[in-house]
């Protein structure tokens, strides 16, 4: 189970880098969140704590179902060109991703030096997800990729918190879910506005303000 979750999280992080179409990107994010649900369910069963079941349920509802639904509807409604648009082509992206995974492992071994290997592995996977999320935010042209990248980074943080520090306090976790949800709604509104004003959602057109 452990291995299944870890590999699943890693594979979906790479799927984000490989995705060429917007809907594939959203789908990979949804799948990645599903593995987080599995992880929190396992913790919940192990700890037999109601809070953890609630958190798992919320991840399922928000990140696996609702947010991807919102994003997919958005793609349909603004009739966005499905092509994601690369500043860096997929092959080079793969190389960069491999480099990042190595750096994540090195960083994780440094930070969690006194911990067992499993914690280091979880640390490395979450740093990989965070850095790959940042990577697609920077090197993909469509505005929607920035939203998904941000969400993926948040997923990485969630993973790190639950794997190494036993999760955030319940109240904080709830507040973060609220923030993420509100954030997606607000970013969504701005995607609509960008689409209207700039005819399309290519962020390389957002270059009016300089100096």
């Amino acid at each position: 189970m452990e291995l299944f979750i870890i590999l699943g999280l890693l594979a979906t992080a790479f799927a984000l880098v490989f995705a060429k179409r917007l809907s594939a990107l959203v789908g990979s994010f949804s799948l990645q969140s599903f593995f987080l649900v599995l992880l929190s369910l396992r913790e919940a069963v192990r700890g037999a704590h109601l809070d953890l079941y609630i958190i798992a349920g919320l991840v399922l509802a928000l990140k696996v179902l609702i947010i991807p639904r919102i994003l997919l509807n958005m793609i349909k409604e603004i009739k966005a060109n499905e092509n994601l648009g690369f500043f860096i082509n997929p092959q080079l992206s793969l190389l960069v991703a491999l480099g990042l995974i190595y750096l994540s492992w090195a960083f994780s071994s440094l930070v969690f030096a006194h911990q067992e290997t499993l914690v280091k592995v979880y640390g490395a996977v979450s740093f990989t997800i965070i850095s790959l999320g940042l990577f697609i935010m920077v090197f993909r042209i469509k505005a929607l990729a920035q939203i998904v990248g941000l969400l993926a980074m948040e997923n990485g943080i969630f993973l790190l918190a639950s794997a190494v520090s036993g999760g955030m306090p319940f109240l904080v976790e709830m507040a973060i879910f609220f923030d993420v949800f509100v954030g997606v709604i607000i970013l969504g509104v701005f995607v609509y506005r960008i689409n209207k004003l700039f005819v399309g959602i290519d962020i390389d057109k957002l270059n009016r303000l300089r100096g």
Partner: peptide, 19 residues
């Protein structure tokens, strides 16, 4: 156009920072 561009950059950059 200008204000929407500013707002978009504002949320995205600050959200990454804050993550």
């Amino acid at each position: 156009k200008n204000s929407v561009e500013a707002a978009w950059k504002y949320i995205i950059i600050c959200s990454v920072g804050i993550i």
